[in-house]
Write a protein that binds this DNA or RNA. Structure first.
Lengths: 337, 337
DNA sequence: TTGAAAGCGGTACCAC
DNA sequence: GTGGTACCGCTTTCAA
């Protein structure tokens, strides 16, 4: 392991000059800087995280706290964050805090205290806690929120444009020729639920289609509720929709399941679309038309903002990245007649 | 932040003595040790990770590498490892390495080089790579394998007793009165597949039941293949099993799905059991009888071994922890008649 | 524009 | 059994 001393030696300067180059201070002659950078490259020099942390009192690592990293959303975000960190040359240190536990503040304090982490990524559900954000601020932590369900006025956040994505899903169904389209919404007060439903209704209105009361259900993001709703929606052959857009894949799977048990074939008799593109979307048959969220891009942007903060550009309080519609085999033109 | 210096002051000893107590060296008078420990507690002293790392050249953190932490198995293990680390007072630093990438060795070297991590938990798929283990050994890393599919002769590993769990699932079905029991296996050369099938066959043999050829299928751990297998298995009303044990929950879900589309009710007409207790097990209806793997216990044991290595006890090369049978509503006595 | 030297919080070699 | 002190690699004040 080459040290700053080796680099100084090789470049024929003092370690202070090397340090200046490392922290790109202004007062270095370009020529000197070149010399030092060359030496660093030749020696494959990397500054020591430990030494820096010891000196500065802050860890170089980026912190992330989870309530349940095995959950799909958090897991995907974690994966994307790890990937982004690798690309940015930094490392991720994770901690587990029970959501709603009475001593989460102590757990967080302990984490910050011990790791000396001062840059964090906040994912749901913690990004929605104003108390938690306040504590972070008091400890001098800079952070970026990812996909908060309640947009925070006091913090920079990165989200995804779910309304638009839901609009596109619906438009896709419309463009296939569907005119009788149902929607199964998620948990009612979730922002995601509202956005997805809003996009659905916007596309419907734009196409001049009716949003029938009994084609609008609430499945609360779970299989069982969605199955019950689907059963009702599909009960009357004369009155049923030819396509159903469920607000997540698990509920879409429930629709497929129900259709199958009613003797309907997906997509010939009924088109089904989901949202999230989780494992179940390709685990079932037919694979679901769904929406893929830009986890990778979001994590990359979050890490970039922490690693190279740009006070100017980071003023954008609520940047939203685009989702992507993935068309698979669960959607097709409606049955004729 | 109290330092070792503050502790020494308060206890009226030198920092060296404090250091000795910290590293529980032998040459300290019990009385002195007590005094120091008291001072540490009073000051809420915690040694600085950075200072230790700088001095020793090794990070205190425990490392873990994933190929895909959003996958169910890795995600659960990650969650359990985080929890275990918190309880053990250490922290987890994760890295992402693409499975089968041609420069995984460089990625690993970079990770070790930069983080100075020297204690790692190896989870699938990396725990199965002898090359990777060799590289770790060369770098002086101690590690514990979790659930390797090929038991490694050269490393300590922690696994779960899947054969026994599969045996218990089957026994549960037998005890309900089933005599016609099918099995849908996973990907053929996976160790998990073999163990689960072996447990199934052992229970069958013990109960004096027949293992019929057409009640043994291969679903390759995915919904679609399992659905096809189930369709065949359930095709002939006179010849079909009254219970099916699938080697994972996703395949069990496929069985439920197929049963439903054939007009069969689970569990009245057909009992279904899965394995893994993943989200889908409780997402579908009826919730699946399945097997819960001891992720928490395994992670705790893995961390314990890394944090307080015990050369004596750690000779146990392949410790296996017990799984737990979870009986839910997808299993019931066979239909009468 | 550059350099010497102190110190961040520990560990460990040596002397007592 | 205990204490003095050099040192890990870097940042930073102060002088030159």
């Amino acid at each position: 392991m080459a040290t700053i001393f080796d680099v100084a030696n090789r470049a024929g300067v003092s370690i202070k000059t090397v340090s200046r180059v490392l922290n790109n201070a202004s007062n270095v002659r370009p020529q000197t800087q070149k010399k030092v950078q060359l030496a660093m490259r030749e020696l494959e020099y990397h500054p020591s995280f430990a030494a820096r942390e010891l000196r500065s009192g802050q860890s170089e690592a980026i912190g992330i706290i989870f309530s349940d990293p095995s959950g799909g959303f958090q897991g995907r975000l974690h994966s994307a964050a790890l990937s982004a960190c690798r690309d940015a040359g930094c490392f991720l240190t994770a901690a587990l805090i029970e959501e709603g536990s009475d001593n989460w503040a102590d757990q967080l304090a302990e984490f910050l205290n011990r790791t000396r982490i001062r840059r964090m990524i906040l994912v749901p559900p913690f990004c929605d806690s104003a108390d938690l954000r306040e504590q972070l601020r008091e400890e001098g932590v800079t952070f970026t929120l990812i996909s908060p369900s309640i947009p925070a006025a006091d913090a920079v956040s990165l989200g995804m444009n779910e309304e638009q994505a839901a609009y596109e899903v619906t438009q896709h169904l419309v463009s296939l020729g569907h005119e009788r389209i149902g929607h199964i919404a998620g948990i009612e007060d979730h922002v995601a639920t509202q956005l997805r439903k809003a996009g659905f209704l916007r596309a419907l209105a734009e196409a001049g289609l009716e949003a029938r009361e009994n084609w609008l259900g609430v499945g609360a993001f779970n299989f069982r509720d969605a199955r019950d709703v689907a059963r009702q929606m599909l009960a009357d052959p004369g009155e049923r929709p030819t396509a159903i857009f469920a607000a997540n894949d698990e509920m879409a799977a429930a629709v497929c399941y129900t259709a199958s048990s009613l003797g309907l074939t997906v997509p010939d008799d009924l088109s089904v679309a989901g949202f999230d593109d989780v494992a179940i979307a390709t685990a079932i048959w037919p694979p679901l038309t769904t929406v893929s969220q830009p986890f990778t891009a979001i994590a990359a942007e979050a890490v970039r903002r922490l690693v190279e903060p740009d006070p100017e550009a980071d003023q954008g309080q609520n940047e939203a990245l685009e989702c992507r519609l993935i068309i698979r085999e669960s959607t097709a033109p409606p049955p004729v007649g």
